[in-house]
Design a protein around this nucleic acid. Structure first.
Lengths: 136, 136
DNA sequence: CTGGATCCATAGCGATACTG
DNA sequence: CAGTATCGCTATGGATCCAG
């Protein structure tokens, strides 16, 4: 039970994820990035500074509550800055930090993949469902 | 409600995500990729074909149920193949498809970012919590 | 060994109402 | 406009038991 790793793979990807330490790191980031809204918000902010309701409308379907929570989380993790203008009515601007912008690159990779392979996924899904349906 | 896109940004990232159509695509993929286990499983399978309990042990903490569900989902979406050997005891191998391997690249991008910036995030988190704590 | 079925606890998230 | 607070539903995910 000491060494049960397979040696065959020699790591196709440029950094192993199966080391426990890395697993935690990835899982942590994933629970931030992988939630329902983070990537969309970050992507929107990738186009420049935005006000609260601007983001809200640009995403269309996000609830006020979730946008607040998402932005709070991003702010907490140092990915966006929150600038309050003490005017009336109040105005709050959100903007990506350097760290936040650095996330834009890997995130856009996922986004690109998503758009390129969505059709393939939907197709596979239909085939799978059909097969399961007929088998049952 | 016809055209509410800003023109200023000129898209830092190589593909806009704020088009409704793309938003759905990304959200879809995200709900598959962004769950608690998919990325870890895909990463592990990136090193080669694996049996059910091999994956299970390599991740350590995943429950049997969730591994089954995750693999089923991945199979449904055409990202992994499931090969059953009708032996006794039964043996089932999982392996990434071409589509699955193509996901490995953007995923490893996220993984890389995670490892590189985990410290920065944790740091920002502590500062934020300290600030909020003192403000309250 | 692989994995289905069930029970249960919690987290996520939307809807709504209220405040500065 | 930009939040906060509360409620309630649903999805997620773990534990456990059962079966081929």
């Amino acid at each position: 039970m000491t060494a049960r790793r397979r040696q065959e793979g020699t790591s196709v990807i440029p950094g192993n994820l199966h080391v426990p330490e890395d697993c935690r790191a990835v899982s942590e980031v994933l629970s931030r990035v992988g939630d329902k809204w983070t990537i969309l918000v970050v992507s929107e902010l990738g186009n420049g500074s935005r006000r609260f309701n601007e983001i809200r409308r640009s995403l269309g379907s996000i609830s006020q509550r979730m946008l607040t929570l998402t932005l709070r989380g991003l702010e907490r993790d140092g990915l966006v800055t929150r600038t309050v203008f003490p005017t009336v009515p109040p105005r709050v601007d959100y903007e990506l930090t350097k760290l936040g912008r650095s996330l834009l690159e890997p995130v856009s990779g996922i986004g690109l993949w998503a758009r390129q392979n969505r059709a393939a996924i939907q197709d596979a899904r239909q085939r799978f469902d059909a097969a399961v349906g007929s088998a049952a």
